[in-house]
Simulated assay, not measured.
Amino acid sequence: MAVDNAKWVAQCMKDNADAKVPEAVVNKYWVCMNEKMDDNETRTITQWEKANPQARKACEKAAGWE
């Protein structure tokens, strides 16, 4: 499962390459989002993110993406 998690986060990093924040902040945000997801989740992190705004806000704060 860890390989899948790394793959998901890597894809999110690629998708957010043009973010106006440091790469480390983007990575911390997506790792946080991935950790909040259930291991049996079938949606992408991005799909899950859109359906879970409270988790998104918590991860933005934790990552310093404000």
Rank of each mutant, 00 (worst) to 15 (best):
A63Q: 00
N40M: 06
E35L: 13
D38S: 15
I45P: 01
N27D: 09
M1Y: 13
A19I: 06
M37R: 03
K28V: 07
C12A: 07
Q11K: 04
A6C: 12
K14V: 07
V9Q: 01
G64F: 00
M1N: 08
K61R: 13
Q11Y: 12
M1A: 05
E60N: 14
E35C: 09
V25Q: 10
V26L: 02
M33D: 02
E35S: 10
A63L: 01
R56P: 13
A63P: 01
A19G: 03
M1Q: 11
W30G: 05
P53W: 02
T42V: 13
V21T: 06
P22I: 04
A63M: 01
K57F: 15
D4W: 14
C12L: 10
N16D: 04
N34M: 12
A2R: 10
P53L: 03
D38A: 10
A58D: 10
A2W: 10
Q47K: 02
A55G: 08
I45F: 00
A19N: 07
E41T: 03
A51F: 02
Q54F: 08
E60A: 14
Q47F: 13
K20V: 05
R56I: 12
W48Q: 02
C32T: 04
Q11D: 04
A58S: 08
K36Q: 14
E60M: 07
T46G: 12
N52G: 02
M1D: 12
A6Q: 06
D38P: 12
W65G: 15
C12S: 09
E49L: 11
D18C: 08
K36S: 12
Q54S: 09
A17H: 11
A63T: 00
A6G: 06
K50M: 11
A2E: 14
W30M: 03
N52Y: 04
N27M: 15
D39R: 14
Q54C: 11
M1S: 05
E66L: 13
V25R: 03
E35Q: 08
A62C: 04
D18W: 03
E49H: 15
C59L: 02
N40Q: 12
K7H: 11
W30E: 01
C32V: 03
C12G: 11
E23P: 09
K28E: 11
V3I: 08
M1V: 05
V31R: 07
A62G: 08
K36A: 13
N52I: 03
A17I: 07
V21Y: 10
A55I: 06
D39P: 08
A63V: 02
E49W: 13
E23M: 08
V3L: 09
W8G: 06
M33T: 02
M37I: 02
N52K: 02
N27G: 10
M37Q: 07
K14F: 04
A63S: 00
K57Q: 14
A55K: 07
W65V: 07
E23H: 14
A62N: 06
D39T: 09
K50D: 12
N16C: 06
N34Y: 10
D18E: 07
K50N: 07
C12K: 12
T44S: 07
P22N: 15
E66Y: 14
G64V: 00
V9F: 01
A24P: 12
M13A: 04
E66R: 12
V21N: 05
M13L: 12
V9N: 01
